[in-house]
Design a protein around this nucleic acid. Structure first.
Lengths: 336, 336
DNA sequence: GCCGAGATTGGCAGCGCTTTCAGGTGATTA
DNA sequence: TAATCACCTGAAAGCGCTGCCAATCTCGGC
């Protein structure tokens, strides 16, 4: 059985109140007494019981990070950033993935370790539905939403200014890469990121007076394979006109590149392809991908910052931190 | 303030004992009473306070997963597997990365959320030092070691039979790929995986009566860049003899491939390169990498299984689960 | 030598929950 | 009719810790 505060008190010949005071760094304890207590703690290897403490303080120093998925570099980088920052600030990180669609919201609660376990929740939701909204609304702890927004629920947020990066990328494609037109390959229409990037696409197309026909916009699923298939079907047509292909993530861009090369085309001569996210893959394709770098781990870290800030000052106005994304030019679009 | 067991008891006109009994699925409660309690619970949206419960039961249903690093697909896959399984079994997962070298072990304790927070620990340590050993020895909770072993500390373990995969890979290289010799590019000599793979290398070389000279074994750092540099320096020599290069991970293999291609060689004609891990990268290099597939997410899931099994039966004999790795043949070594 | 302020310390009441232990029902049996 | 028993339920004792309140001690000042 683990050593309790009573054991320490006995050994130091004080009451448990005094031990508790020493523990909580109150300097209202006489220096000599404190030393006695401290060495008792050390000798016994005592560390306070988290449950008992949490029961009183209603604080666990655990933060929860919920992501739509745990697959891929994007999420793993968020976790990495969040974990490091949480550690720095003296918190633990609890990870969970996705609230499955067909859930009554109780899963979210369960994931939070029933009521009271975690001090705050950082959540990223790719597709918001009412049920999740409702559960989130009920939660009585600080909430930070990553890369999105949830109506009617008070929360802080970290967003990435994808638009700026996307616009820079598209302008680069349009102005510097001699393409006759640009096609967009995104995720589903329900996906927030996709729509954001699509809107940037439309904007720059309008700006450059380039056409946006029905066969210029494709909605896939962010996977390499489906992009590869699309590439197989379309690349002849695209290469003929030297189009620029704007894929909404690097995975799909890689799929498209590989399909083009498999079909005998050479890039960037016949086709310009650009991606998004600047994941490890972007530097691995041949030609290497021109893409937009998104500060993923920074986003994780910032989310934790916001959570802890609100924990320290619950009355603060809701904050929204915007992180910049930036153009990374490599060879896949034919410049440099 | 959140609703407590007392509120439920009041509403259902019973004592808290009865509510507690209903909660703990004891069927010793009269059906009618139970229903009354259950609807009170539902109406109030009650869920038990984890701390109070943990204080009594000494169980938190939280498991901790500690990894040497959170960077890269390898670890993110472990997390993914562990998370999914933990969820299935009704546990939460707490993630932390690395115990830094210059730490007195207290960091490990802190990471465990002081004493008592987590029910079990799954840990992966790339380089075991005494201090970590000592802290681990003190921990009074079930311990599962991933892909390694810690002397003198009782624990279950999940290991990957890298040797089998490595041997298969090397035999393939030696027997089917017409290489005149094989060089090994690994991580540091302190790295367990590297040494494991190196030993497989020596075995197969001996078997095939191929030389293993001092300029056949290189110790790098598992990074793309350093491998690329090594490639730049050595590729002329290697290509002349058509050597097979066995890189201890896919990243380095990719670096070597790119260096060779940048130097004007074509693969697999001039050089055969194989990797290890079968990460996303392996399918992205051109030529695509022949490598060894390692069941990463399965390793995470198995670790959780072992933890929970031991939690359920503390007296069980220490278990060691071995997961198989398997050869994945692609184009980088010249067959198929 | 005595008094009150300030510095320390101990006592004790919970925090919300589980878990004996004892008591209160009917129903069954002698 | 009284005794026995199986079934349920409530009362109360903590689990280990914090925080309020009161008790004690130490001095400086009169």
């Amino acid at each position: 059985m683990p050593v309790s505060i009573q054991d320490v008190a006995d050994r130091a010949n004080v009451s448990i109140s005094t031990v508790s005071r020493v523990l909580n760094r109150r300097n209202i304890v006489n220096a000599k007494t404190r030393q006695r207590v401290e060495s008792a703690i050390r000798e016994l290897g005592y560390s306070p019981n988290v449950f008992a403490r949490g029961l009183m303080l209603r604080r666990s120093h655990i933060l929860s990070l919920m992501l739509p998925d745990l697959h891929g570099e994007f999420y793993s980088e968020i976790i990495r950033g969040a974990n490091a920052r949480a550690r720095e600030l003296g918190y633990q990180l609890m990870i969970s993935s996705v609230i499955s669609k067909d859930d009554d919201g109780s899963e979210l609660m369960t994931a939070l370790g029933s009521h009271g376990l975690v001090d705050g929740l950082a959540i990223m939701i790719s597709e918001v539905d009412d049920r999740t909204r409702d559960s989130l609304e009920k939660i009585q702890i600080p909430l930070v939403v990553l890369d999105g927004d949830i109506d009617g629920v008070e929360h802080d947020s970290v967003v990435i200014d994808q638009r700026k990066g996307a616009v820079a990328l598209l302008r680069h494609l349009v102005n510097d890469c001699q393409v006759t037109r640009v096609v967009f390959v995104g995720g589903l229409v329900t996906n927030i990121d996709t729509m954001e990037r699509l809107s940037a696409y439309r904007e720059v197309m309008a700006e450059a007076k380039l056409p946006v026909g029905p066969d210029h916009v494709f909605h896939l699923d962010y996977q390499y394979d489906t992009a590869y298939e699309l590439g197989e079907a379309r690349v002849d047509q695209w290469a003929k006109q030297r189009v620029g292909v704007f894929a909404a993530n690097d995975e799909m861009a890689a799929g498209l590149i590989d399909a083009a090369i498999a079909a005998g085309y050479s890039l960037p001569e016949d086709l310009a392809v650009v991606g998004f996210d600047d994941t490890r893959i972007a530097a691995m394709t041949r030609p290497r991908l021109t893409t937009v770098s998104v500060p993923m781990s920074n986003m994780g870290a910032t989310a934790i910052d916001l959570l802890v800030q609100r924990l320290d000052d619950p009355e603060r106005e809701p904050a929204k931190v915007t992180l910049e994304s930036s153009l990374v030019v490599r060879e896949s679009c034919g410049v440099k």
